[in-house]
Amino acid sequence: MQHYPADDQVVSQIETVRTASPEWVISTVELVELAENAERAAVQTNPETAERARKLIVEVAEWQQKLSEWQGLNLSPRLKAELRILKATLDASMDEANAAAAELHLLN
């Protein structure tokens, strides 16, 4: 069986993504719901909520970048598959979060 030394480096850090992904997805869904409700009610976003949304977007973007970098390493097929799945999840979450943030004018 082939040994993939880079796996050790990635596996030691990927637990953060595995653990945080469900939380990021839930936060993204809440942001989308907030954007839809705010648009209907024509209300301004709470500054604390806006800051939390910005932090979510920055944190997920940083992990997207890290996952992209890891995909370039010589990793085991199992780990490469997991990275593709996690990256696709984060990509979808970012698309939703960015759209909601734009509706709430958080990126201005």
Rank of each mutant, 00 (worst) to 15 (best):
L73M: 14
N108R: 07
V60T: 06
D91S: 12
I26P: 01
R84C: 00
N46M: 07
E51S: 15
E48F: 05
W70D: 00
A97C: 10
L73N: 01
V32L: 11
S93F: 00
E39L: 04
A61C: 03
E33N: 11
Q64G: 04
I57Q: 09
E30K: 12
I26E: 13
K66M: 13
E69D: 12
R84S: 05
T19R: 15
A50T: 07
A6S: 14
R52G: 00
R78P: 00
V58F: 03
I57C: 04
E36H: 08
S68I: 08
S93M: 03
S21A: 15
S12D: 08
A101N: 03
G72L: 11
T19N: 10
P47K: 11
L107S: 11
E82T: 02
I85D: 09
S76H: 08
V58R: 14
T45K: 06
A88H: 04
W63D: 00
E48V: 15
S68T: 13
S21H: 03
D91K: 07
E36W: 03
A99Y: 07
D8Y: 08
P5N: 03
A99H: 12
V11Y: 03
L73F: 15
R52F: 03
N46A: 08
L67H: 09
R54I: 06
I57F: 03
E39M: 02
L79G: 08
K80W: 01
A88C: 01
I26L: 14
V10H: 05
L86Q: 10
V11T: 09
D95E: 11
E69G: 02
E51C: 01
W24R: 09
L104Y: 01
N108T: 14
V58T: 13
I14N: 13
R52C: 04
V43D: 02
V17P: 00
A42Y: 10
P77N: 05
P22Y: 07
Q13T: 02
S12Q: 15
L75R: 07
V32T: 03
D8W: 10
E23R: 15
V43T: 12
G72K: 13
L79W: 06
R84K: 15
N37C: 02
A42N: 14
D8A: 15
N98L: 14
A35N: 03
L56V: 07
L79K: 10
V17L: 14
L107D: 11
V29M: 11
L79S: 06
N108D: 13
V32A: 14
I14W: 09
E48A: 14
H3G: 00
D8R: 15
A81W: 05
L67D: 00
V32R: 06
E51F: 02
Q13A: 12
E62M: 12
A38M: 10
A88R: 08
S27G: 08
E39K: 00
E15P: 01
V32S: 12
E96C: 05
E82H: 06
L75I: 06
K55V: 12
D8V: 06
